[in-house]
Design a protein around this nucleic acid. Sequence first.
DNA 1: CTCAGGTATGTAACCGGTTACATTTTGTGT
DNA 2: ACACAAAATGTAACCGGTTACATACCTGAG
Lengths: 335, 335
Amino acid sequence: MMSLSPSKRANLRDVARAADVSVATVSRVLNTPEKVRKETRKRVEEQIRLLRFVPSAAARAFSTGRTRVVGALVPTLDNAVFARVLENLENGLARRGLALVVATTDDDPIVEAEKAQQLVNIGAEGMVVTGITHNKAFTKLLDRAELPVVAISYYDPSYHIPTIGYDNRESARLAMDHLCASGHRKIAVLHGPLHFSDRTRSRVDAIGAMKTDAELHFFHTDVSIEGGVRAVQQMLSAPVEFDACLCATDVIATGVLFELQRQNIKVPDDISLMGLDDLPISSFTNPTLTSVRAPVQQMGLQAADALADWIETGSRPQAICLPVTLQARQSTHQR
Amino acid sequence: MMSLSPSKRANLRDVARAADVSVATVSRVLNTPEKVRKETRKRVEEQIRLLRFVPSAAARAFSTGRTRVVGALVPTLDNAVFARVLENLENGLARRGLALVVATTDDDPIVEAEKAQQLVNIGAEGMVVTGITHNKAFTKLLDRAELPVVAISYYDPSYHIPTIGYDNRESARLAMDHLCASGHRKIAVLHGPLHFSDRTRSRVDAIGAMKTDAELHFFHTDVSIEGGVRAVQQMLSAPVEFDACLCATDVIATGVLFELQRQNIKVPDDISLMGLDDLPISSFTNPTLTSVRAPVQQMGLQAADALADWIETGSRPQAICLPVTLQARQSTHQR
DNA sequence: CTCAGGTATGTAACCGGTTACATTTTGTGT
DNA sequence: ACACAAAATGTAACCGGTTACATACCTGAG
């Protein structure tokens, strides 16, 4: 009664033999059980249990040509924006029966290209990448592999990869408009590294390109709460008295707020403070933080759907621009 | 010169034919190029380029039996603790040539079992799960699939899955000791849902089980900043004047801090506040937040290594208990 | 009783790599 | 020039599902 090869796993043919049916029938029991007579099905299921048969995912992927895996390349998970995008991407993809492989790039195009290669190597059927700044190796890889790929967190309809995101420039402009309209004239702009992040660059560029009589000073720091804290020192040691501080992301703004508070500098009375992205925390700080909402949830879900559609139907999606909206709160006020 | 079948992708045999070598040689060029004569290699590589050959990951997985994918089941990414764990898991696994599939469970064992099945279906070679509370379907699945699985964020050497984590009870005890030792006698304990999270349960149980003359009141809320904010209302409407508030996670504590601040209740003068986990933000709030550090980075890296070893060598790892350490900061002080 | 037509099942080809082993080529020392 | 080991390459089996197509079975109408 017992199998004589104790260690090896049962495969579909073993089950077929044991249940005295053909391999096709076993396969049908697994995939389209309604097409198998009840009695036969029971017999097969019985043997599946007895032989502890678990179908080989690899073999299935091989013969169907589908792995049901897609990859996502994000700079980091250590920033709530990306964590939230991924959370929604994962949910959206799971609904479509796709699993999400996460790879972090640290915003380094070289790392990105390597990880992208890894994703191709494991058989990702599609990819989600962040932004539109990528190196040659990366582009070549995608070209060769002919994978469905969408770029998120950025909108640029002319880019060779469909972008599903929002307008980072517009986001920065909304912020500046808000600050300028409320009478701010000396604005410190705090942002993360520009080299690799097109999101940051777009935001900073857009600010720099605005026609305004406000005086702008740019400061560079890490994208982290601590980065925000440190940036305050820079800002305060500049020979200017700022009436507003605009941070390229709420993560930095949060740090700035904490440090200003610590130094007993009142927001918004002494200085207005504003961020971009609108993280959940921004609604609860004291004062609550004025920001421009990046539609991360929608973006994640729509990217998931677009990519799933592309994978299933082969039809390349259109670029999508989701709206960014000003969330005026307590950290900014009329001068 | 051109291929006559325009749409179909080249496979390894096509390359072999074009380069006038055997399939084995092409395979060697891909996997062990040093074993192929330079001249031959060049010829093959040339054809790989010309035919735009990309090896089929599925076929490779099939014949080697390896997908190089492992799965992680976490409650959510919308909590910095898990995002950070994943970040480190991913880094650790990437170093070992393994890709990480992320699946979120929302702390629901049913969802967890479903997602685990999905992970098995896509051919995960191993899994990382959070905690030790899982349902029968899940356990049965792991048993059938005979996958290497480690459980993180929890330590219990007697559990049937190797745990790589820390002692949640100890973490809670450290916190309570700190509060009691500094003279707090009426403590509000704010925590997330108990039903599914063994981490929360351990922490809350450990607090309840302590021999102390302090008066304890437990309040339940969501694990989010907003949850913390809302919990303050509950806490304040209780017929007790608390001298300390202990939150089962820094996420809640952050919300509590914001709300207390908003209501002009001074921390720690009016009430001491303490969290668990020690998120990066806790070092920068005003006042900085006393907490107990959960070693998420080490945990992620060690879990990655343990799992990779298990997958490669087949030897099951030992449970690992990482130390939790009190981080006394400004939000608590002597009564 | 027969045959159409649907339903259930079986047969065998196929997917595209890897690799043990066989065979050929190359290189070295005498 | 020859022997022989080492290096390079080739042959063919193998992994374990899926599925097009063929065949067997069953039911009810004529």
